[in-house]
Every structure is written in structure tokens, then in C-alpha cells.
Amino acid sequence: MTTAVGRRSGADAASARRPVPVRVTWLVVAVLALALVAAASVAFGVRAVTWSDVVAGVTGSSDTLAEAAVLKRVPRTVLAMLVGVALGLAGAVMQGVTRNPLADPGILGVTTGASLAVVTGFAFFGLAAPTTVIWVAIAGAAASAVLVYAIGSLGRGGATPLKLALAGAATSAAFSSLISAVLLPRVDALTDFRFWQIGGVGGAAFPRIAQVLPFLVVGAAICVLTARGLNSLALGDDVAAGLGEHVTRTRVLAALGAILLCGAATAVAGPIGFVGLAVPHLCRLLVGVDHRWLLPFSAVVGAVLLTAADVLGRLVARPAEVDVGIVTAILGAPIFIWIVRRQKVRAL
């Protein structure tokens, strides 16, 4: 009978035989796609603009309403790309750390934990400083991740993919109820947080981006540096230890990077789901399972997906717009069903 390690070893071998030029080609295609959706994000929106308006707005002019609209779209586009990078990269790392094809910041309750921490901080402690909000969101994400892993590790067999997914779903539901309990008696807070809870990048501004950027850079760097260790973990803890990998250290560092990314992204854009779930699966089909390629590719494709979803949300409901969190949920639900049917909740 073929063992899980054998299946993974075979997958790794197939990935290793995948020609490097093919991977480079797909990475170039992803970067070009990102450039195209970034240009579309600046050019298209609720207000129709001309090419001259786009050029003037990008260069900083706001003399007309159209130019001002374009100027406002620039930081929104940058934030959408950064949040997409964070969620795509965090999803790939979480799936690698847990060897769970259903691992995702939303499904595992990490973003909901960050949301609960932020909402509680605003409601009870009057948090106002943006940097403090980011730290609080990261702390909430970390606490939620530890809780889900602890619950999923109970019982025989330890933290299996199914138990982690169920623990994450239950934790996310409980935290969502607590968020509602905190907000419902506070009408003013409910109004302020209603749109933030959906998830969106409409309130982007460069000072806000500058405050969250260091957290995203550090989180991304930690994740990328653990790529080789994640390849070893994919073979199983015993095999990884036999290869000289410090399993616990690698898992903790990778999880720390993912938590930094999730917490910072949630603090600045609200809880946005399904990006971290769908993107790594698509990237594995294109570049294989080697995390040295998978992680940067997931970052770029995550930016493409979230920026494209934001553009789509602005176009489908003119003159209003649909928040990107709703668009990603609509796109991600069928992908989630496909993953469940295809993977049958097996380990990666």
C-alpha cells in the first residue's frame, strides 16, 4: 500500500523534474497579469475617466473630479496588492505547516480572531493609534491560531486536517458571535465597523499603508526564509527530523510569519476570505509543490486575485460598488467545494 510519505515523495520528485523555465514562464505571466490588473484598478471604477485623466491623476494632479478619482485609486491599488500578497503567502504557509489542504486564515479562524481583538479594543479600550491596532490584530490572530491548533490536537491522532478544519470553523463561528455581541449594544460602533467586517480596501491611504508595510515585509521575509523547511515538513515530521530539520522551530517560525501577515492585513483591510485558500492550490498546479517557488508565486497570484476582485466589485454595481470581501467570497465558495471534493480532506 502506498504511504502518505510515499505519495508526498513522489509529488516532490515530480515537482523537482518540472523544468525551471516553465516555472519562470508562469512567474513572468503572473507578474504581467499583476501589472495589467494594477493598471485596470487605476483606470476603471465607479466614475468613468479618460486616458488623460489617468495620466494626470497618477502624476498627482487633482484639478478635476476625474483626476481626483484616479488619484484616490492609486493607494487603493497598492493596498489591494499588498493585502493579496499577504493572504496568498499566508495561505500557502498555513497549508504547508499543517499539511492541510483546507488551511486558510479565514477557515482556521485566524482572521476572525484578529477581528475580535480589534473590535474589542475599539469598543472597550478606545484604541485609536493605527500601529496599536495592528499589534492588537496580530495578537488576536496569534491567540486564535494557538487555540485552534490546541483544540485540533486533542484526542487520538493529533492535529489531523479534518480536526483542524472543524476546530477552525467552530472557533470562527464562536468569535463571530462574540463580535456581534460586542457591537450590537453600540450602535455607533456597529455603523463604523459594519463595512470593515465585510473586508475592503476602499479606505486606503499612503500613510496607512506606510504603517502596515513593515509588518507585512517582516512577515513575508520570515515565510520565504522557511520555504526549504516547509519542503522537509511535507515529508512528515519523522522524515524531516531525520533529514536534520528542526521541526518545531520551522513550524513555529513559519506560523509566526503567517500570523504577522494575517493580522496586519486584517487590521488594515478587514477579514477577507478565500484568497489564502484558493491561490496556493492554483499555484501548485502551475509550479509544483516546492515551496521555494510556491511561496513567491502565491504572493504574486494573491495580489492579482485580490486586485482583480476589487476592480470587478467596482464595475458590477455602478454607481455603487461591492466590497472586495464579498467578491472573493462569491468566487471562493465554488473553489472551496471543488477542493473538498478533490482532496477529500487529505493531508497535503
Rank of each mutant, 00 (worst) to 15 (best):
residue 46 V to Q: 15
residue 35 A to T: 10
residue 151 I to V: 15
residue 336 F to Q: 12
residue 217 V to W: 02
residue 74 V to D: 08
residue 299 A to N: 11
residue 55 V to R: 15
residue 222 I to D: 05
residue 137 A to D: 04
residue 195 F to W: 09
residue 198 I to C: 06
residue 128 A to V: 14
residue 47 R to H: 11
residue 170 A to H: 06
residue 313 G to P: 00
residue 29 V to N: 01
residue 189 A to I: 03
residue 327 V to T: 02
residue 203 G to I: 08
residue 114 A to I: 13
residue 188 D to E: 15
residue 89 L to H: 00
residue 196 W to C: 01
residue 347 A to N: 07
residue 15 S to Y: 01
residue 241 A to C: 03
residue 215 F to Y: 13
residue 81 M to H: 02
residue 154 L to P: 03
residue 62 S to K: 10
residue 87 L to F: 10
residue 85 V to R: 00
residue 214 P to Q: 02
residue 214 P to M: 08
residue 322 V to S: 07
residue 233 L to E: 08
residue 35 A to I: 12
residue 339 I to K: 12
residue 329 A to E: 06
residue 81 M to N: 06
residue 293 W to T: 04
residue 178 L to N: 07
residue 35 A to M: 11
residue 140 G to N: 04
residue 285 L to Y: 03
residue 162 L to D: 08
residue 338 W to S: 09
residue 206 F to W: 13
residue 48 A to C: 00
residue 241 A to R: 10
residue 119 V to K: 02
residue 215 F to L: 11
residue 148 V to M: 12
residue 176 S to I: 02
residue 188 D to R: 11
residue 163 K to M: 14
residue 74 V to N: 01
residue 269 A to P: 08
residue 236 G to M: 14
residue 122 F to D: 00
residue 15 S to A: 13
residue 4 A to N: 11
residue 69 A to L: 00
residue 92 A to I: 09
residue 182 V to R: 04
residue 27 L to V: 03
residue 225 L to Q: 11
residue 339 I to C: 03
residue 295 L to M: 06
residue 338 W to C: 06
residue 205 A to W: 10
residue 90 A to S: 15
residue 147 L to N: 06
residue 40 A to P: 06
residue 89 L to G: 04
residue 311 V to I: 11
residue 10 G to E: 13
residue 38 A to G: 12
residue 102 L to F: 14
residue 36 L to F: 15
residue 292 R to T: 07
residue 265 A to F: 09
residue 195 F to S: 04
residue 299 A to P: 07
residue 34 L to V: 00
residue 264 A to I: 03
residue 51 W to S: 04
residue 150 A to F: 13
residue 108 L to M: 14
residue 274 F to M: 09
residue 114 A to G: 14
residue 147 L to Y: 14
residue 195 F to P: 00
residue 53 D to H: 01
residue 153 S to L: 06
residue 198 I to S: 03
residue 222 I to L: 15
residue 317 A to Q: 10
residue 312 L to V: 15
